[in-house]
């Protein structure tokens, strides 16, 4: 009877201590997980004047919180790709000599359609729509 009572008290004290620990740990755990911050969705940005960019050159454009690489392929053709490498998210750059997109971090190469040519990137770069509105270059998300 006494042993039984002691057992119950042991369970109560142990359970109480465990519940106390859980009540301390839970808020701490929730605190360290960053909250989701909702950003206004960006679907279109103006990337400056068409004449500002020379043929066979590129510029990084802010598309909301992401970098987008705008390339002028010829006099009339522009292309835009997501600026983050699909391998480990380094920001890519345009390689003028090879006319390719290059990630300096792990030497990944993409062609001017965003497809992987060589190196470790597992997927193609996402492509954006580019069109001219008057003299302005407009980049929009592909639906």
């Amino acid at each position: 009877m006494v042993a039984n009572r002691r057992g119950w008290i042991g369970w109560l004290v142990g359970g109480g201590a465990a519940a106390s620990l859980a009540s301390f740990a839970y808020p701490v755990l929730r605190f360290v997980i960053p909250p989701k911050v909702s950003e206004a969705p960006v679907n279109e940005v103006t990337a400056g004047k068409a004449t500002d960019l020379l043929v066979n050159s590129a510029r990084m454009i802010r598309f909301g919180s992401r970098p987008v690489l705008l390339i002028r392929i010829s006099d009339s053709e522009y292309r835009a790709f997501d600026g983050m490498c699909t391998h480990l998210n380094c920001t890519v750059q345009y390689h003028q000599e090879g006319r390719q997109i290059w990630c300096a971090c792990h030497n990944g190469f993409y062609d001017l359609n965003g497809k992987v040519v060589s190196g470790p990137p597992p997927r193609a770069l996402a492509q954006y729509e580019v069109h001219l509105r008057g003299e302005d270059v407009i980049i929009t998300k592909r639906s």
């Binding site: 990084m60 600026g83 380094c90 920001t91 890519v92 300096a104 971090c105």
Partner: peptide
């Protein structure tokens, strides 16, 4: 600069 490309030789 989060919008600059990763430099060569990084």
């Amino acid at each position: 600069d989060p919008f600059a490309p990763a430099p060569a030789g990084i």
